[in-house]
């Protein structure tokens, strides 16, 4: 199997989805980048193919009818995507940075997410919003947010955060097949990460977590690029004789309660690593739910390791300190890790 980069896995998924269903189309800012530029159109070339180049090549292949460059009008093109979805198309708009949700939120918050319910079950919203998340690219406070938790708090929206190229492709194809709004969050710092990705069309079910490694002493539940942090923690603790189970949530809404709770029932200890800021975030939701539904299985407090309650800083050293790392996870969870060590 060939190894390809995360962003190429997404490009492949979009390509295959568009090939499979001609109602699938892309819209967003600069996703083609060459619309109405004569010298490019003459050669059927795109320019940017999205600001990270994720959609590169799709414009020339499918034309500007299906790869639509929008004006910088997040509010209206997101609403147009909702309008097109409810009238039968399968739009895949790209919100360049999840931080821009501020200018486009109404379409998802009060319109799309509620239509099926408000209309008594008559509407379908086959809409996948692709967006980028994540700190670590020196993009500072307005282009680095990890806002999946905000979307996840809205009934009527599913939220996916893939951690690797294989998952990215399979989850994106599932999302596009969904007759519901899915916000698909791509960590921009993972775009270059390579992994094995089958060339054929395949899907990974939404709402199902992946157990990345099994263990019996401690569960770590995490999301997106924090999965690699969790794996590093697991490797380091293994040397201390602690057997860590790592769960990649994959879907933040709905998150896989069954897998998480089963794991906690086995290990009795839970760390949740979430790149989002600490309050009202996914980690908090998981911690509260596990406390509620598996209280009698807990053998220690649930530890949440998150970003601090600050915007994302610019300076490299500060941004490094902002992101949860293996060191921080081990340090902040010492209370439940140390007694595992001592009792060996």
């Amino acid at each position: 199997m060939t190894k390809i980069a995360f962003m190429n896995a997404i490009n492949q998924a979009l390509d295959q989805a568009m090939e499979k269903d001609d109602k699938v189309f892309l819209m967003g800012e600069d996703i083609l980048g060459g619309t109405d530029i004569k010298h490019l159109e003459e050669k059927n070339e795109d320019s940017w193919g999205g600001c990270f180049g994720v959609t590169k090549g799709l414009g020339p292949k499918y034309g500007k009818k299906r790869v639509i460059d929008t004006p910088i009008s997040e509010q209206s093109y997101m609403g147009a995507a909702v309008g097109a979805a409810v009238t039968g198309l399968r739009p895949v708009p790209e919100l360049m940075f999840s931080d821009f949700i501020g200018v486009s939120f109404d379409s998802l918050l009060t319109q799309g997410s509620k239509m099926r319910y408000m209309f008594g079950g008559k509407a379908k919203l086959p809409l996948t919003v692709r967006t980028t998340i994540g700190a670590g690219a020196s993009a500072a406070a307005q282009h680095s947010g990890a806002y999946y938790g905000i979307f996840a708090s809205i009934p009527g929206i599913k939220v996916v955060v893939p951690s690797n190229p294989y998952d990215a492709k399979g989850l994106l194809l599932s999302a596009i097949e969904e007759d519901n709004i899915v916000v698909f969050c791509e960590d921009k710092t993972l775009y270059g990460v390579k992994g094995e990705v089958p060339e054929e069309y395949y899907t990974i079910p939404l709402g199902k977590a992946a157990v990345k490694r099994e263990g019996k002493d401690l569960s770590i539940v995490t999301i997106g690029k924090m999965v690699s942090v969790a794996m590093e923690v697991a490797d380091r603790l293994e040397k201390e004789g602690i057997d860590v189970e790592v769960i990649d949530l994959r879907t933040v809404a709905p998150w896989d309660e069954e897998t998480v709770i089963e794991s906690v029932k086995k290990t009795g200890r839970l760390i949740v690593i979430d790149e989002a800021q600490p309050h009202n975030n996914t980690a908090t939701d998981i911690a509260a739910t596990v406390t509620d539904k598996a209280f009698d299985y807990l053998d220690g407090p649930i530890k949440r390791v998150t970003a601090p309650n600050t915007p994302v800083p610019f300076a490299t050293n500060l941004e490094q300190a902002y992101l949860p790392t293996a060191d921080r996870v081990i340090e902040e969870s010492a209370e439940i890790i140390d007694d595992l060590k001592s009792s060996k």
């Binding site: 509010q75 147009a80 909702v82 309008g83 097109a84 009060t110 319109q111 408000m118 209309f119």
Partner: peptide, 28 residues
């Protein structure tokens, strides 16, 4: 109130939010 069978995309509680929905329907 909405009735998709009649092409009625809903009364709307948010002022100005019908604009992009119409754009979407027109795009469709």
């Amino acid at each position: 109130i909405a009735d998709l069978d009649k092409g009625m995309l809903g009364a709307n509680g948010i002022v100005g939010s019908g604009f992009p929905l119409a754009i979407g329907a027109g795009l469709r």
